[in-house]
Every structure is written in structure tokens, then in C-alpha cells.
Design a protein around this nucleic acid. Structure first.
Lengths: 120, 120
DNA sequence: CACGGAGATTGACAGCTGTCAATATTGACG
DNA sequence: CGTCAATATTGACAGCTGTCAATCTCCGTG
């Protein structure tokens, strides 16, 4: 593979390639692909959003419910959901006027194995 | 400025208390304790630093070696190491003039189990 | 003791990020 | 159609963050 400055990997794929942190030194390239994913997670509101969605009975949650769980404006919640979605941590599903989000199990598993060294 | 934090939990302990993200909705309190830990990790340079230390043969690495691995100024590396240390992800050990850092296995394991849902 | 080198701290600055108000877009339904 | 409700987008702004140059602290050694 040649170096490509415009590679369009989903962030989830950015992780799949890497051995755990403690296994061998992370390359600069890998680090720069992984950091945005962690950055997406590194916010209290987004952590709660992801947890709310992931722990929801049906495995998915409607934005309308999520908005009510915070004392933040609707655009702010929408912004956080967008960040999580673009990182590949949340999957979006629009049904009619409502939008449902689902947590990406593979993304979370990938992150965890990167950090702990557990094989996926 | 102020060392105002009233709670004196290490960030590692901040995690130990929580069930995995997908198990039940994270409380605001828990989210605000965990986010700083992820924030410490969510930087390409710090990811590489942690990986360098964690994957080092003896389990620890001297700052002098770490400095050489980046094209960044010494104060910048020192700053990143401080962030990782204050988050509880790196342990500091000063021996004479040299300082050695060691990765905290429990912090990493805690984070991973929080994310993936694996029991600690 | 004085000097030199390892690492930390300080101060400054540009760029990023979380938040809101205002507005746009989209689909259901009369 | 026209209206209404659910999300998304835009623009603005304050606060945080990564970086460097300069300086400081500490310790070993001549």
C-alpha cells in the first residue's frame, strides 16, 4: 500500500489494524488515526449519551429521549451525537421524523482490546 | 491555581466503581470522573508515549529515551508525561537525575472493561 | 564548591471545542 | 398545499489545549 494522505477509513477500521498499546510502540500514523476516536469519547456528555444508547433495552435510542436526559440545548445534543457518529461509535437510523442511534459494538470492542491488550 | 479538588480519588479509582458503559446509563458524576482519563489518552503524542513506555522491555522507560522518539521540544514531552501521570496512567519513579515512567496496568484494564463490558 | 546536564515549570499564543440562539431542513398529517 | 414537530446546521463566543522559548530546580561529578 502506498501512503495516502486522503485515506477514508472509518475510525473503526483505524483500530482493527493495531496491536495493543503494550505490545509494541504505536506508529505515529496509527496514533493519529486512533486519537480522534478517543477524543470523541473523552467528554462527559458524550460518555453518558453513548452509555444511554448502549444500555437501552432495544439497543437503540431515539434522539427525542436523549434530549430530555440532559439540561442542554437540543443543538448541543445533536452536535455530540454527530461527533460520536462520525467517530463510528454510534450508528444512525432515521425512521420517519425520528432518528435512532445504536452503539457500535465492534468499535467499542476494538478500543477496549487496543487499550487492555485482550485479543478481540 | 487552586488545588481545590475536594475529592481525592485517583482517576484509576474513579473507574473501579462503574459498571460497563452498555450495562446501565452512566451517572453524570461518573461520567465527569471518567472523561478526564480518556481525555488524557486522546492525543496522538500521549498515545505513543504510553505505548512506548508500556511496550518497553523492562516495563519502564527513561524520559531521556522518550524525548528522542519525537520531534518535539523537551518541555512539550514533559507536559504530556505530566498529563498521563496525573491521570494515573503512568507512574513516576525518579532515580538520581533520571526519571522513569511505568504504565499502570490497572488503569488500562479498568478503562478497557468500562468500554467493552468485560468484567475486571 | 562550582559546574553541567536531566527534567520540570512558566508565560505566551494559536487553534480547537463545547455551548447557545437563530435558522434551516425534513417528513407526517390535516 | 400549509402547518407543525423533530433534528440538523450555522455563526458567535468563551474557555481549554498543544506547542515553544526561556528559565528554574535538582543532583552527580570534577
Amino acid at each position: 500500500m502506498s501512503k495516502s494522505t486522503t485515506l477514508s477509513l472509518t475510525p473503526v477500521q483505524a483500530i482493527a489494524c493495531c496491536s495493543p498499546l503494550a505490545r509494541e510502540p504505536l506508529s505515529q500514523d496509527a496514533a493519529e488515526r486512533i486519537a480522534p476516536l478517543l477524543k470523541a469519547l473523552a467528554d462527559p456528555v458524550r460518555l453518558r449519551l453513548l452509555s444511554l444508547v448502549a444500555s437501552h433495552e432495544s439497543g437503540e435510542a431515539c434522539v427525542c429521549d436523549l434530549n430530555d436526559a440532559f439540561e442542554l440545548s437540543q443543538p448541543t445534543i445533536s452536535h455530540h451525537l454527530k461527533v460520536l457518529h462520525e467517530a463510528g461509535l454510534l450508528e444512525r437510523d432515521k425512521r420517519g421524523v425520528w432518528v435512532y442511534y445504536r452503539a457500535s459494538a465492534s468499535a467499542l470492542a476494538g478500543l477496549a482490546s487496543l487499550i487492555s491488550g485482550t485479543a478481540p
